[in-house]
Amino acid sequence: MRWAVRIGSLAAVLVLWQLLTASDTRAWLRFDQLPTVVEVVERFAVQIGAAEFYHDLGASLGRIMAGFLLAAVLGVALGVVIARSRWLGDLLRPPLEVVRPIPAIALVPIAILLFPTDEQGIVFITFVAAFFPILVSTRHAVRALPTIWEDAVRTMGASTPQVLFRVVLPGTLPGVFGGLSVGMGVAWICVISAEMISGQFGVGYRTWQAYTIVDYPGVIVGMVTIGALGYLTSAAVELLGRRVTRWLPREALR
């Protein structure tokens, strides 16, 4: 019954969209400018058969993966280092804190100047976007770690690297995955924006290009594709997070 309501609600929105656009309604909002649901679906059917569509998908996914993985590795490593070492914290935090409030997308001009190819610049923007949420949540998770676990393994004779790999990294995983989820979301926002500004292919570029050549059904197809990719990658992070944090008390899992 609840599912019927949910599906019905979604269907109602689509029907309303179709009615408003097909009838060229103009009630302050200019629905006559937008493509109809039918046009979008037809356009989607064409796109799915085209090699270019998959090439764009692959390009955007590749950029996300490269930037996100780089951000995950460096964000976790630096987050742990900053939280555990006062000296390295003092050394590394000031420059990071200065750059952190700048939205990654505002770095596009720098990225274009700095990197020899557009591709590298886009990956850089994606990396910066995902890096800070991962860094900050890792730092908080390390700080919040109960000291009792470290005390326990120290009195078992653990060395500092052993404390790091046996206690700190596994113990901070729940917090780290919070950062990875946020990071993945921001990474998509930025990869799409960066592609719209400086790409030559990719889902973001294709969506913006469709707009410039007045292919409005193509714009909606691009938007839906971006949404689906974002959803799938976030779900993958979520799923992985649940797998590695099964030990958490049930109420914490929601």
């Binding site: 009792i148 676990w149 326990a152 009195t155 206690v167 113990g171 995983l173």
Partner: peptide
């Protein structure tokens, strides 16, 4: 050489 047993939560939960 000197093992410490805690009141609670001394086990690694994962």
């Amino acid at each position: 050489d000197r093992a410490l047993v805690f009141q609670d939560d001394g086990l690694l939960p994962w």
